[in-house]
């Protein structure tokens, strides 16, 4: 188990990012000039109180939203001005999402849920099945492939969601409070899984959390306050994770 993480070139670079919601008198600046660099292969936790701008930043990083001003370089390309559909294609190609509320399709088997991104990629059925089963295997749920979300526990649902996020082998996995709906034991299991994917599959992980125990799994911790980056710390003592 390598304790040192190989962190490569800059994957994401935010410069002077602002985000203003509303107009005129009711305008509200959620982000007031954010500069962040994220290295390929990093495990980043984004922390901060509610309203500090961490979710807005995640939405912009996930190409779900566009900044009002500023530069956003992804893999060396400007992506701050992409159209809605171009951003969708970028998400499809390079990003994977994990949400607090799991967000699996109801009444749909785990396998079909995991397949979904591949369906949009237009992959053949056989290839889709194989890749989805492999992803389910990676999160330890291969035996549960034909279960619907209602038949799975919260921890299992989040594992399926992670499998769906990694089935396309994305560059970046964005996790928005991935343990918010889970008890401590399940939360740690999820964090161990994310750490494993970060170390062994080379996936860059960006995670929003407000629990410092969870942030402790990250390599870099970005603290937000009032729409600005308060501080960026490196986490020297990451817990050992079993493979």
């Amino acid at each position: 188990m390598p304790s040192d993480i190989a962190i490569g070139d800059t994957l994401i670079s935010l410069r002077g990012i602002t985000k203003v919601f509303g107009e005129g008198a009711t305008a509200f600046a959620a982000l007031k000039g954010v500069d962040i660099d994220i290295q390929r292969g990093d495990f980043v936790a984004v922390m901060g109180p509610s309203g500090s701008g961490k979710s807005t930043t995640m939405n912009i990083l996930g190409c779900l939203d566009v900044p009002t001003e500023g530069q956003f370089l992804f893999r060396g390309h400007h992506v701050e001005n992409l159209e809605r559909d171009q951003r969708a294609l970028l998400r499809r190609r390079y990003l994977g999402f994990v949400f607090q509320g799991f967000n699996l399709l109801a009444r749909t088997t785990a396998l079909e849920n995991v397949e979904l991104p591949l369906v949009y990629r237009g992959e053949e059925k056989a290839a889709r099945r194989a890749a989805a089963m492999a992803a389910l295997d990676k999160v330890g749920l291969a035996d549960w492939w034909d279960h619907t979300p209602a038949e799975l526990s919260g921890g299992q649902q989040q594992r399926v969601a992670i499998a769906r996020a990694i089935v396309t082998s994305p560059d970046v996995l964005l996790a928005d409070e991935p343990t918010g709906n889970l008890d401590t034991e399940r939360s740690i299991e999820i964090m161990e899984l994310l750490t494993d994917l970060n170390r062994n599959a080379g996936i860059t992980v960006l995670m929003v959390t407000h629990e410092s125990e969870m942030a402790a799994f990250a390599h870099t911790i970005i603290h937000f306050r009032d729409g600005l980056v308060e501080k960026i710390t490196e986490n020297a003592k990451r817990p050992e994770v079993k493979a």
């Binding site: 559909d85 969708a88 294609l89 998400r91 499809r92 999402f97 967000n103 979904l116 991104p117």
Partner: peptide, 11 residues
């Protein structure tokens, strides 16, 4: 929302 997030285009 899920479909859009995982990369479905509007069309």
């Amino acid at each position: 929302g899920i479909r859009l997030a995982i990369g479905a285009v509007a069309r």
